[in-house]
Design a protein around this nucleic acid. Sequence first.
DNA 1: ATATTGAGCAAACAGTTGTTTACTCAATGC
DNA 2: GCATTGAGTAAACAACTGTTTGCTCAATAT
Lengths: 189, 189
Amino acid sequence: MDAALQLLEHQSFSSLGVREVTREAGMSPAGFYRHFRDLADLGVALVEEALGSLHAMVLAAFAGLGEPEEVIDHAVQVIADHVREHRAHVRFIARERFGGVRQVREAIAAELERFTDEVACALAAQPVSAGWNPADVRMVAELYVDHMVLTAVALLEAEADAEAEGRIASTARRQLRLISLGRRHWAAG
Amino acid sequence: MDAALQLLEHQSFSSLGVREVTREAGMSPAGFYRHFRDLADLGVALVEEALGSLHAMVLAAFAGLGEPEEVIDHAVQVIADHVREHRAHVRFIARERFGGVRQVREAIAAELERFTDEVACALAAQPVSAGWNPADVRMVAELYVDHMVLTAVALLEAEADAEAEGRIASTARRQLRLISLGRRHWAAG
DNA sequence: ATATTGAGCAAACAGTTGTTTACTCAATGC
DNA sequence: GCATTGAGTAAACAACTGTTTGCTCAATAT
């Protein structure tokens, strides 16, 4: 799996080959089939590795108890840290979210859906959502999750350029502030 | 190029082969090199075909002169129509925006940037943006462009299921309304 | 001590790959 | 009418592909 992630830095999953992966991993082609039935199988395993451990993290990002301003700063910081420490995983998810392999696409969609549910739950618990239609809460959660993914990949593309990273983080914060403002003035019901 | 688009419905660009494309197009492999130096060359040609004609359209979507509500309905309708008539192009852009081929990724990024500039220009002309910091206007434009792309691909995945399409369009409209609300209450300067 | 199992290997299979070469042939320019 | 050119072809090249087979060999379980 590490070998595959390595290779996926410069190509997309549907162009990966069994031989290519095993060569990178330093083993024989046949060895691959001891662990995975398919390349698609490897793909969904990678999805679980990349997104499985993410849930706790993001709920932590939401757990700011202070002003919305502080919560936003904290959330963006958490995303930036995660990108710095899991570049390959983030790249994989962004690249294959709409990629060419159905099983992988669907695994990512399912995981992001669970994810959106959890965010919706956290949002519903905030005072600002009092009296809101649940469908509207979920719509905001979708907005947040999509925004998070796009921010992560933008930070990735900054390639450790601190100045670019700062610009992206600043934009992301202002966008979140705008959305937060919209929430506060939404006509609930 | 049509043959390539056809194949790209089920795989991503970096797994495309010269022979594969020429076979689908009904010509010999060598013929490919009469038209393109590279596969990447074909890729950026596809990007221009897919995004080149889009500018006029979206500015038209913004040209609603009525209430924000009407403008939003119109914009989402324009997106839905475009997706219906250019499924392959939309899929290609969404899939390769973060895909495995650098030249294609960069061509899409450049085109979307021009795009964002135009949207920012249109936004700046609206009364709501009076007194706004240009950087803040651009940040909103980015939000809109990203949202547009995500809405387009979501509609694509609905696969002509009218009920799912309706749900997605409704969500998109509510999200745009929320953002619009945020704009109205933004502290300019 | 012995059986089972998980994880690895080399070799072989026929089929596909990108690219170049030397060629044809209709359309076009003048 | 004749040269040029744009767009196509078949054939050839070595290199690479996914997958299966039969084999080892260490670790584990009993």
